[in-house]
């Protein structure tokens, strides 16, 4: 088999390439959102307006409810809209079309329609943007049957999973971590897609399983390097999609290591980590040598001040400390 050629690009470039390639491939794909048609605003959408024109790369007014509902309608009528939500925080103005309509219409109408809609939702803290511009809300959306939820943590997955999301016939919430936009990594050349619903082992190890979601998959990899210096061989697993959640893929690692730590940037209570922990103990309770540990944002809003924000958000150091605590 010929070796796949790899290129090093950023997470934002990976998203941009996926959008370019899918719009090229399928004329039913179109983009909508605030400021998507101007290249200077976001690296993820740069160049698309010039390449495909402003009919298909459609700037919207600040009208999240209106354009999200419109995307649901266009999807029902045979198109494949991709929305740019700018920040997931703004999606609260558009919950109804996503949770009440997009996710339920196929079921509620007895299979008469499908809603092939992708909502790109950049999110996350670390930039001193404060309580309403730093949230990680994917946990909310795994409570909505009918909605796929994807949380890529590196450029290859960002590209491969976004391309799969656009080809998916179900509505997809595609969560992008703003802190990862400049992260560079290898991406296979050509039509690179990744399967929805498969976890990926990002680093192999034997002593402890670190499950990282989105930005925290990156921090888990850094933590694993630090732990290696202390003689701990950590395995890092990224669920990549949290609806569907690849419980078997995660449990397989836990059966190997016996210890499990879950890191996420969302709040701890009712978080994605809580769901994963419950599912792992259902699947692999006998393999666990200690209770599952969780590292997450504290249950307070994300404050603006740098020092306060750092107290609230998870970090590589907090993951290392929690891992050591778990193993001791």
């Amino acid at each position: 088999m010929p070796e796949t050629k790899m290129r090093t690009i950023s997470y934002a470039q990976a998203i941009n390439e996926a959008l370019h390639e899918e719009m090229e491939r399928d004329e039913k794909v179109f983009l909508m959102g605030e400021d998507v048609a101007l290249s200077a605003i976001s690296p993820a959408t740069a160049g698309l307006g010039e390449r495909f024109g402003h009919e298909r790369v459609r700037n919207t007014p600040i009208s999240e409810l209106g354009f999200t509902g419109a995307a649901v309608g266009a999807a029902m009528a045979g198109y494949r809209p991709v929305l740019d939500m700018r920040r997931i925080d703004f999606m609260m103005l558009a919950i109804d079309p996503i949770a009440n309509q997009a996710a339920k219409l196929r079921y509620m109408l007895g299979g008469q329609v499908s809603v092939p809609l992708v909502v790109r939702a950049p999110e996350g803290g670390g930039s001193q943007n404060g309580p309403t511009h730093s949230q990680c809300l994917e946990a909310w959306f795994i409570q909505v049957p009918g909605l796929r939820v994807i949380v890529p943590s590196d450029p290859a997955d960002a590209k491969g999973l976004l391309k799969s999301a656009i080809r998916e016939d179900n509505p997809v919430l595609f969560v992008e971590y703003r802190a990862l936009y400049s992260l560079e990594g290898p991406v296979p050349d050509g039509d690179h897609t990744e399967p929805i619903g498969k976890a990926a082992v990002k680093r192999e190890g034997a002593d402890i399983t670190l499950i990282g979601i989105g930005s925290q998959a990156r921090n888990c990899l850094e933590a694993a390097e630090l732990l290696a210096g202390e003689g701990v061989d950590a395995e890092v697993v990224d669920p990549r999609t949290i609806n569907p959640l690849d419980i078997e893929g995660l449990a397989a690692s836990v059966r190997k290591t016996g210890f499990c730590l879950i890191a996420e940037e969302g709040h701890k209570s009712g978080g994605v980590g809580a769901e994963i922990a419950a599912s792992i103990q259902e699947a692999a309770f006998g393999a666990l040598e200690a209770p599952i540990a969780r590292v997450a944002a504290l249950d307070v809003p994300v404050p603006v001040h740098t020092k306060l924000e750092a107290i609230v958000l998870p970090s590589t150091e907090k993951i290392v400390a929690a891992a050591n605590n778990l193993l001791s």
Partner: peptide, 23 residues
């Protein structure tokens, strides 16, 4: 394209179907 029971929810969807028809 459906009766929609959340009051007001059908109007944005109609805009989207109108957009599809425009295309």
């Amino acid at each position: 394209y459906g009766a929609h029971s959340i009051v007001g929810s059908n109007m944005p969807m109609a805009v989207g179907i109108g957009l599809a028809f425009h295309f």
